[in-house]
């Protein structure tokens, strides 16, 4: 991973992106976008999280094992979400 002065510039760039994303999600929340409010908010949040993971947490420059670990964690989270919703989303009585 990059342990040099240049990395700092990248950190500020990420910080700027995160700030823009925060403002954007704040602004978008007050607009009536129909069903799109939540997806847009989540899309912005995911984008911000990806920036933090890749740059602040150095995953972009780390080995394959680290990348696999991150993906595995998210995959298992999706199992939890998806299979739980298989039940709750298909209940005819709620």
């Amino acid at each position: 991973m990059s342990a040099h002065a240049g990395a700092i510039k990248g950190y500020f760039a990420v910080f700027a992106v995160l700030m823009v994303g925060t403002m954007l999600t704040y602004y978008a929340a007050f607009q009536d976008l129909g069903i799109w409010n939540t997806p847009i908010a989540l899309f912005i949040a995911v984008t911000k999280a990806v920036c933090v993971v890749l740059i602040f947490m150095h995953v972009k420059d780390s080995n394959r094992l680290t990348k696999v670990t991150v993906v595995a964690g998210l995959f298992w989270l999706m199992i939890l979400f998806f299979l739980t919703m298989v039940d709750f989303a298909s209940r005819p009585w709620s």
């Binding site: 298992w76 199992i79 299979l83 298989v86 039940d87 709750f88 298909s90 209940r91 005819p92």
Partner: peptide
């Protein structure tokens, strides 16, 4: 092992569809 947990809950009030999947 992570994909089958609701088979402990077939009579707990999960949806029939979820029952089939699990």
């Amino acid at each position: 092992g992570f994909l089958v947990w609701a088979h402990h809950m077939f009579v707990a009030g999960i949806s029939l569809y979820a029952g089939l999947v699990f």
